[in-house]
Simulated assay, not measured.
Amino acid sequence: MNRRNRSIFYVLLFLTVASHLWVVGSSFTAWLLLALQFLLYPQLAYGVALRSADQRKAEHRNQLLDGFWAGCWMAGLGFPLWISFTMFAGACLHMVVFYGLRGLPMVVGAMGLGAGLVIASGNWSGVHFETDLRTTLLSMLSLTLFFVTYALDGYRRAMYQHRSEMKLRAQVEEIRALQARLYEQTMSDPLTGLLNRRHLEKALPSAIASAQVEGRELALLMVDIDHFKNINDQHGHDVGDEVLKSLALIMKAAVRSDELVYRYGGEEFVIVLPDCPADLAARRAEQLRRRFMECPVGLGEASINATLSCGISVYPEHGAVGRELLRSADAALYRAKANGRNRSELFASTPGQFDRQPLDEAAGAAGDRPA
């Protein structure tokens, strides 16, 4: 970028100074120095910087030399106003872009050194502020084009940075979305779409803590599909999966927004019911049991009816922490299985409470192992 900008500006300065030299009738030596300075020097400066071990340091040296040579030409020409202003403004812009405000004293010092050496050597003929109209217009044109070139570079860099930032932002959002999806996958059951046991272990302590702060009860239902192994053995695992998904849909439809449904493992499910006393939890469990029993799962042209058993525990009566509540609900579920399945049981309740004679298992339930 510096090579291009320096080359363009120096060509414009060459035309401007050449116009002035033509008007004042300068010598061949002045013309030769003009060509060396404004046409050859920019390429030499680029070559030196390109081969330097520290290119930034080399370019900094080149920028100081630009100021030094500008000071020499300004003094040698007698400080023509428009030419001097064009050189000074160009050198200042170049330094400030790369070094901030600290570049101003640097370039002023370099120009002063160059002008001072020319004046001290006696190779100048005093001050000649005036320039002819053509040279003045060329100075204006040179300065304008140089500013436009730098502004265009700045615009392109800003747009490139903006696009890069937008691209980076999009990548960050994509990563966040991916992380959210991965987190959701780690916290949900892929078959039923319900939250999984890992999520329950994180969420249940918070739910209990909220219940404690608010002085409210919290119910936990542990649900298990009756004879699920037989369903898999007789009808295949695909049908078993459909039974699981059917129950998941029924449970999701039966809970409020602040209630959570989990697939605890296998055919076991857990429902967390905030602000729910024991009697209400028992009614909710019975509603769920009946709804599942009354919704057969399609099996080709036929259908299969499955039932569930449910164990109920309530905070704080049946446990002060999540582990205790789960253990109590599991014990209640075991008793529901032992008492004939297709029923709900409250932990430590009086035998027979919430009992319901199974519709299709009364005859053979007593000899079966709870499952």
Results as ranks from 00 to 15, higher is better:
Ile231Leu: 11
His199Cys: 06
Ile250Asp: 02
Leu247Lys: 02
Ile250Trp: 01
Ala254Gln: 07
Ser164Pro: 00
Ala203His: 06
Ala158Val: 13
Leu168Gln: 06
Leu220Glu: 04
Asp238Met: 04
Glu173Gly: 01
Lys167Ala: 15
Tyr183Gly: 05
Ala209Thr: 08
Gly154Asp: 12
Glu174Leu: 09
Ala219Tyr: 02
Glu184Gln: 13
Leu194Gln: 09
His227Ser: 12
Asp224Val: 01
Ile208Arg: 03
Val213Leu: 15
Gln234Ser: 10
Ala209Phe: 08
Asp224Gln: 01
Ala170His: 10
Gly240Phe: 10
Ala211Trp: 02
Leu218Pro: 00
Asp224Glu: 06
His199Met: 08
Gly215Ser: 13
Leu178Thr: 09
Tyr160Leu: 13
Asn232Arg: 03
Val239Leu: 07
Met251Gly: 01
Met222His: 05
Leu178Gly: 09
Ala248Ile: 04
Gln212Ile: 07
Asp226Tyr: 05
Glu174Gln: 12
Ser206Lys: 12
Leu204Trp: 11
Lys167Tyr: 15
Ala203Trp: 00
Arg156Phe: 13
His237Pro: 01
Gly215Thr: 13
Thr192Gly: 04
Ala177Glu: 10
Asp189Ala: 11
Asn230Gln: 07
Leu204Thr: 05
Leu168Ser: 09
Ala158Cys: 07
Ala219Trp: 02
Ile208Phe: 05
Gln212Asp: 13
Leu168Asp: 13
Met222Ile: 05
Tyr155Gly: 08
Met222Thr: 11
Ile175Asp: 14
Ile225Trp: 03
Leu195Val: 06
Ile225His: 10
Arg256Asn: 07
Gln171His: 11
Asp226Arg: 08
Gly193Phe: 09
Leu204Cys: 11
Pro190Glu: 00
Gln179Thr: 12
Leu221Gln: 14
Ile225Gly: 10
Glu217Tyr: 09
Phe228Ala: 13
Glu214Pro: 01
Phe228Ile: 15
Lys245Asp: 09
His162Asp: 02
Ala253Gly: 15
Asn230Leu: 04
Ser206Ala: 14
Val213Ser: 15
Asp189Cys: 03
Ile225Val: 07
Ile231Glu: 09
Val223Lys: 01
His227Val: 04
Leu200Ser: 03
Ala211Asp: 05
Gly193Asp: 10
Gln185His: 12
Gly154Ser: 08
Glu217Met: 06
Ala248Met: 05
His237Tyr: 07
Tyr183Asp: 06
Ser188Pro: 00
Ile208Asp: 03
Ile208Ala: 03
Asn230Tyr: 03
Asn232Ala: 09
Glu201Ile: 03
Asp153Gly: 15
Pro205Phe: 12
Lys202Leu: 12
His235Pro: 02
Asp241Met: 10
Arg176Pro: 00
His199Tyr: 05
Gln185Thr: 06
